Simulated assay, not measured.
Amino acid sequence: MTDYFTETGSAETVNARISPDADARLAAVMASLVRHLHAFVKDVTLTEAEWETAIAFLTRTGQMCSDTRQEFILLSDVLGVSMLVDAVNNRKPAGSTPSTVFGPFHVDGVPERKMGANISLDGVGEPCLFRGRVVDLEGRPIAGATVDVWSDNADGFYDVQQPDTQPQHNNRGIFVTGADGRYWFTGIKPVSYPIPDDGPVGEMLGHLGRHPWRPAHMHFLVSAPGYDRLITHTFVAGDDYLASDAVFGVKAPLIVDFARTDAGPEAGPETPLWQADYDFVLPPA
Rank of each mutant, 00 (worst) to 15 (best):
T2W: 08
F5P: 00
G9A: 07
S10H: 05
N15V: 06
A16N: 12
A16H: 12
R17P: 00
R17A: 13
P20K: 04
V29T: 08
R35E: 15
F40I: 04
E48W: 02
A49P: 00
A56N: 13
R60T: 13
M64Y: 03
C65S: 14
S66P: 01
D67E: 12
R69A: 08
E71L: 02
L75R: 04
V78G: 04
L84S: 06
D86M: 14
A87G: 03
V88D: 05
N89Q: 13
N89S: 06
P93E: 05
T97K: 03
T100L: 02
V101K: 05
F102A: 15
R113D: 14
K114C: 06
K114P: 02
G116K: 10
G125E: 12
P127V: 01
R133Y: 11
D136Y: 09
P141S: 12
T146C: 08
D148F: 13
D148R: 12
D148C: 00
D152R: 10
A154F: 02
G156Y: 08
Y158P: 01
D159C: 06
H169R: 08
H169Q: 11
N170S: 04
I174G: 01
I174K: 12
D180I: 07
Y183K: 02
W184F: 11
V191G: 01
D197V: 01
D197I: 00
G199D: 15
P200M: 11
M204E: 12
L205G: 06
H207L: 14
L208C: 14
R210W: 13
W213E: 13
A216H: 13
M218D: 11
P225A: 14
G226Q: 07
Y227T: 06
T232P: 00
T232D: 04
H233L: 08
T234C: 11
F235M: 02
V236L: 09
A237W: 01
D240K: 11
D240H: 11
Y241S: 06
F248L: 10
G249E: 12
G249Q: 07
G249P: 01
V250P: 02
K251A: 09
L254Y: 02
I255Q: 07
E266P: 00
E266L: 03
L273N: 11
W274H: 13
F280K: 04
P283N: 05
